[in-house]
Design a binder for these strands. Sequence first.
DNA 1: TCCTTGGTAGAACGATCGTTTTGGTAGAAC
DNA 2: GTTCTACCAAAACGATCGTTCTACCAAGGA
Lengths: 203, 203
Amino acid sequence: MGTQSGHPSARQRLLDAADELFYRNGIANTGVDDVLARAGVSVATLYAQFSSKDGLLQASLLRRLDTWQAYWDEAIRAADSDQERLLAVFDALKLYREGQHSARWCAFLSTAVEIYETDHPAVDLIAADTALLTRRLCSLSEPIAGAGADQLAAAILLIYNGTLASFLRGSPEDPIGQGREIATLAASAFPTRPGPHHSSQVP
Amino acid sequence: MGTQSGHPSARQRLLDAADELFYRNGIANTGVDDVLARAGVSVATLYAQFSSKDGLLQASLLRRLDTWQAYWDEAIRAADSDQERLLAVFDALKLYREGQHSARWCAFLSTAVEIYETDHPAVDLIAADTALLTRRLCSLSEPIAGAGADQLAAAILLIYNGTLASFLRGSPEDPIGQGREIATLAASAFPTRPGPHHSSQVP
DNA sequence: TCCTTGGTAGAACGATCGTTTTGGTAGAAC
DNA sequence: GTTCTACCAAAACGATCGTTCTACCAAGGA
C-alpha cells in the first residue's frame, strides 16, 4: 500500500479539488466535471475511488474533520493556561487557514446550507463537527467556569460561529482577532475557579 | 393596478414560495418547478413577472431587505435607552422570526454561500444588507462608545453573525438570547458616554 | 513473461434543469 | 359585445447533470 508516492495520488488530488470547489462555489454549483478538470483525473477514477459525488463529499468532510481536530489538538497543547486553552479554538482556526487548506468560511456549515432534512450521510459529519465543538468547549470551560461551564461553552460556540460567518459576510474585518477578544471578555465574566484541577488531556 | 385583491396575487405567492424554498433547501437545489408547485402558479406567469429564476431570487432578496429594515426600525423605536437601541437588532431578529417569515438562518448569507465572485445581481443585495448593518450599528454605537463606535459596532456585527450561524448549526440553543447577552457584555466593556446626545432618528 | 494495479480518454445513458411556446379561460373595462 | 388583463395547462427546447461503459496504456511483482 505505498500510497506516499512522489506526487499526490489521484485520490488525494480529487479530495483537494473537492475541498477547493465545493466550499467556495457551492456543492450543487460544482459539477463533477469541474472537480475532474481541477484534479486532472479521469471520470472512471473518481467512481472507482468514491462511489458517487456524495461519496466524494463525505470523504472530503471526513478528512477535514480529522485535519481540523489535529490543528485544534496542537493549539491546545501550545496554550499555557486554562483561559488560553479555551481560547485556543481561535488560534487553531488561524493556523488552519494559514495552512494550504482552502477555506472560505466553514466546510460543515457550508454543506449544512445545501443539505437539509435529508438522509444524506454528510449530515452525520456536520453533527460530528458540532458535537466535537460542544464536547471540547464544555470540557475546556470547566476549569474556568465550574458549574457554569455549559453556559460559557455555549457563549464561546456562538462567538466561534460568528467568526466563521463573518468570513462569509466579509465583515467585520479580522474575524479571528475580533472573535478572540469577545471570547476573552466572555470568559472573564465568569468567576475564576482557582485550584490544581489541571486536566492536560485533550477531551 | 389593483394588486390588493382578496387573496394574494400570483406574484406574492411566487415570492412567498421562493422565500420558503430557496433559503431552506438551497437555491440550486430548488427547481423552478418546486417554486411553481408551492405557489400554485403556472410557468408562464413566473416568466411574465420575473425575467428568470435569478430575477425571482433578486426580487425575493429585495423584499426581505425592506421587510427586515422595517422590523429593525420598529425595534429601535420601541427601545428606550442608548444601549437598548443598539441591542434592538436582536429584538428585531426575534420579531422577524416570530412573524410568518420563513427563515432558517439568513437569506443573504445563505445566498452568499451559493453565489460567489460572479456578476449575479444578488451580490449587490447581499452587500446592501451588510452595508445597512454596518452603517446602523456604527451610528447606534456612537452614543455609547464615542470614538470607539466602529470597534463596538464590529463586535456587535460579529455576535449578530454568530447568532445567525448558530441557527444554521442548531447549536447553541436560543441563539438570540445568547447573542443578546454577549452583546450586552461587549457594550458594557466600553466607557459609558453620558450626555444629552440623543439621536432619535433612525440612521 | 504474464498479470494485476491504477490510471487515461472519450462516448454514451437517462434524468433533470431553466426557459420558451402554444393555446385556452374567467373576469373586469369600455 | 368586445377587448384587455391576468392567469393556467401542457408540451417542447437545448443544455447540463451524475453516472456508466468500452477500450487502451504503463509500471511492478511473481
